[in-house]
């Protein structure tokens, strides 16, 4: 685990995104704050509508934030003119969920891995070729595939190509948006092993977006749990998984199905389903489904309160013995 010593590489504050829809404003992300240090891996976990992918796109400025700042190495990306932002993309790269869609079907794999080098560096053709050879070996992509088009590759190979493309400029921040969700289990394992290895060897700071707790636990140093565009809990991976403090984190963990049939689950049954982000409840966003909710929870939104140096929870009852209140049974 990385020791929090240096100044943060990424500092996100008050980040919000409202989408104007025909049905009214949709609040996808509500005043999210977080920091990311050099070499650190932060996991964003949540279900659909949690805003985790939107946060990723806001950080990458593929979407314009409605409010807030995204400070990368001191520069506010949200306020950067387009051309300066484009040049900065050398340092901020991304791997998306669907490798079948993420590559241009008409260009060769080799060209697409090389493209960021052409865009951001003045390396000679020979230097580019050696950089590509290096990254191709690192991502364990067969060099023979470079001349192929995306349609000739399997999902796992495509995702390795996407990772190679994202890393070829040696970025300082990498956003991984559900990079393994659309892959088969055994393919996924290979990609996860690769990502773990890259994290160890390259030390690039990572935002890892996933709905899968098992994957998050494997890759991330810290975790941020999101529900309806709001951070409900954040902490180091080890502590958060050992002792979740927010009722939603508890429920999410109890809903995770481990592959071990002997591992008994603490079942926390939630009422109903995730409300529509089109009309967010006034109080705590989770109150409508929370087994431990009080009157007060519906009235006011609980702030994210630091419990210790690493853990913050947004729950009025964070001090109570929630585990027994949640009606967890085995």
């Amino acid at each position: 685990m990385t020791e929090p010593s240096q100044a943060p590489l990424l500092e996100v504050s008050g980040l919000s995104k409202v989408f104007e829809t025909p049905a009214g404003p949709l609040k996808a992300v509500n005043a999210v704050d977080f920091i990311l240090r050099e070499g650190e891996a932060l996991g964003l976990v949540g279900e659909s509508g949690s805003g985790k992918s939107t946060i990723g796109r806001l950080v990458l400025r593929l979407l314009e934030p409605s409010a807030g700042a995204v400070r990368f190495d001191g520069t506010d990306l949200a306020a950067l003119p387009p051309e300066a932002m484009r040049r900065l993309r050398r340092d901020v790269q991304v791997v998306f969920q669907d490798p079948w869609a993420a590559l241009n079907p008409r260009l060769t794999i080799g060209y697409q891995i090389e493209e960021p080098l052409r865009l951001h560096t003045s390396l000679s053709a020979a230097e580019r070729a050696s950089r590509i050879a290096e990254i191709v070996e690192r991502t364990r992509l067969s060099a023979a595939l470079l001349a192929r088009h995306p349609a000739d590759l399997s999902g796992g190979q495509l995702q390795r190509a996407c990772i190679a493309r994202a890393l070829v400029t040696r970025p300082r921040l990498l956003v991984l948006d559900e990079p393994t969700s659309s892959l088969d289990l055994s393919v996924r394992a290979g990609i996860l092993e690769l990502l773990g290895e890259l994290k160890r060897d390259l030390g690039v700071a990572t935002i890892f977006i996933s709905h899968d707790l098992g994957t998050i636990k494997l890759i991330c140093d810290r975790v941020m749990v999101l529900y309806l565009g709001t951070v409900v809990e954040t902490g180091t991976t080890a502590e958060l998984f050992a002792a979740p403090r927010h009722p939603y984190t508890m429920a999410l963990m109890s809903a995770h199905l481990s592959p071990d049939p002997r591992q008994r689950r603490r079942r926390i049954l939630l009422r109903g389903e995730i409300p529509s982000p089109l009309n967010l409840p006034g109080g705590c966003v989770f109150a409508s489904r929370c087994p431990a909710s009080l009157e007060a929870c519906h009235a006011q939104r609980p702030p994210l309160v630091a419990l210790d140096h690493a853990r913050s929870v947004a729950c009025l009852r964070a001090g109570d013995d929630l585990a027994s209140l949640m009606g967890a049974h085995t």
Partner: peptide, 14 residues
Amino acid sequence: HSGFVESAVAAGNT
């Protein structure tokens, strides 16, 4: 709005 165009923007294409 396709994936590869978004990827191309993210890669820093003009």
